[in-house]
Nucleic acid binder design. Structure first.
Lengths: 337, 337
DNA sequence: CTGAAAGCGCTTACAG
DNA sequence: CTGAAAGCGCTTACAG
């Protein structure tokens, strides 16, 4: 059977309280005893039960990560960063792919509560403010990658606004004037900010983004492809298109191909995220990189930071700089256009 | 404070034993009492603690998934399948990206043991047989996606051999004779089997795979690109290349492009896995699809199956059929070659 | 410096 | 049909 604290106490001829203290480096224990006990733990292959320890009020050393879908490369990369930082600090992470469905979200939250995990990172939509408030009463929370509405929590996001501006800047510098945007719902803070930043920067240069060149769609590649195809029809088609994530950009690339438009000579495409997808397309996508590693690490740090203290009213918000990765999907606008 | 079983017992005017029984639908409890207790649990927002329950010997309802890297799209998709099936059956999953590094593997295993998770799915290399044997003594195991060497465990894999054969068959039908293979180390059962199946099928048609057209490389895209570039030089370059996963195929695609070879007219490429990457390249990749959903679901099922019974000597091995997905990266071999 | 005892929130024989 | 009590494996005042 697995050795318990009683076994090592008996072997060492001490009380379990003493063993507990040497495990946790608490209280004063003589060097001698300490060494003895360690030796015996080793010999018995003793490993303290985090279950039992958690029951006495200590941490479970487990974190929850709520995201739309772990199979989406963006979240996969973020999850990896979260996992790494967590692991470094002694925490495991449970993944929860919600598909943004309320029912799954509720289920996961309920389960995570019952397991008394130490905290939760939320990168998915969250029913409503009530769900959030209630959740925040039972454990520390941090929003990751997007804002959570109507209730203050620690938040770490990419600087989406600035990212949108960089995309615009890049295209302006290449001489583009007739541009388009393809993004997800503006109910998503990240989408909205990217779009707004892009638009703002354009306007600073006197370029107006036409309504019909600003399309919203679902998150799947096919949705992007369909919308892009629509925009690429007609004589006043844009010479450049900014897509709010890699998947949509892939769709746009495919639409361009089917429309017989060459990228980048006839159409420039800028994407957002810079996941592995951006480097795999042909041409590879110029993309606004989200610092996925920092995003994950910062989320974990913000979470752990809350463990010591009472839930403070003061919530922090970290916006990480994005970076323009120039690849082959963008080029100078043709002069004749 | 959070309600405990004592709170509901007190409110209901019954013992905690009774409450426990209604929660677990055990023993005989009168309809009346049962309803009463349920009502009170509801009112108190009572949620049983899985920590406490686990301490009495019940399940933790948590599973571990050991894989090389959750950021790799293949594992992301498998993880999603595992998560879904687990969630369906009431289990959470902890992800453990090992990078195939012994040190990380050991750490994760140790942590998972301390957390007393109910079982573990292993899709990564595992130090040595001793690690495995020892692990198998403390919890149920299933190997997922690849064989684990030197120690019998339940296993669920794609039928890699047959997959390799399908790839060969497809290319043979297109008239190719001079073919090449690019795959990861043959110490990986999955790579080895794909290669062997491919080769076997070729030989059945009297086609010999030249040594110099059989290259092994690391798992990254760049590695695939480098090796492919090397193979594509020279006058007797292959007219088709079979890559043992999508990432390597992307590398091959890039190498072809840099060498000025058009795909598929001058070079056909078949990949394996059929992750999202295969649908995103240009041209999209013809790929041998692994049934990732079934893989994940079957792994969970094989794991749970072991919960009831003693560790039996009889280990099951499930090999799931692969499927050829024809896209645009393969075409008839040119007649003049 | 060390240990006895209570407690964390459950489950499970066992007795009635 | 219901409950008292022991036990799961720890931690933490508290007393010495």
């Amino acid at each position: 059977m697995k050795a318990t604290i009683y076994d090592v106490a008996r072997e060492a001829g001490v009380s379990i309280a003493t063993v507990s203290k040497v495990i946790n480096a608490k209280g004063k224990i003589s060097q001698e005893r300490r060494r003895e006990v360690f030796a015996i733990m080793e010999r018995l292959h003793y490993q303290p039960s985090v279950i039992a320890s958690a029951l006495t009020g200590k941490h479970t050393y487990t974190l929850g990560l709520l995201i739309p879908d772990i199979a989406n490369p963006f979240y996969g990369e973020v999850a990896r960063a979260v996992e790494d930082r967590g692991h470094q600090l002694g925490y495991s992470v449970i993944i929860c792919s919600t598909d943004n469905r309320d029912e799954r979200i509720e289920q996961y939250i309920s389960v995570l509560k019952q397991k008394r995990i130490d905290g939760i990172m939320v990168g998915t939509g969250l029913g409503n403010a009530d769900t959030l408030r209630e959740l925040s009463e039972s454990m520390p929370i941090v929003a990751i990658g997007r804002e959570l509405p109507d209730f203050p929590v620690h938040t770490v996001v990419a600087d989406d606004w600035q990212g949108g501006r960089s995309a615009a800047e890049h295209l302006l510098l290449l001489g583009h004037r007739r541009m388009a945007v393809l993004c997800e719902s503006i109910s998503l803070s990240s989408s909205r900010d990217r779009l707004m930043g892009f638009k703002e920067r354009l306007e600073e240069s006197g370029v107006i983004l036409a309504e019909r060149h600003m399309k919203h769609c679902k998150h799947r590649m096919e949705d992007g492809k369909r919308e892009a195809a629509r925009m690429l029809k007609g004589s006043d088609r844009p010479t450049a298109i900014f897509c709010c994530n890699d998947l949509l950009a892939v769709g746009a690339l495919q639409a361009a191909k089917e429309a017989g438009l060459r990228v980048p000579s006839e159409l420039s495409v800028v994407s957002f995220d810079n996941t592995i997808l951006a480097s795999v397309t042909d041409p590879p996508l110029t993309s606004i990189a989200q610092p996925m590693e920092q995003l994950g690490a910062a989320a974990v740090d913000l979470l752990l930071e809350q463990f010591g203290q009472e839930a403070s009213a003061h919530k922090r918000r970290i916006a990480l700089r994005t970076e323009l990765m120039v690849r082959a999907s963008t080029a100078r606008a043709k002069l004749d256009e």
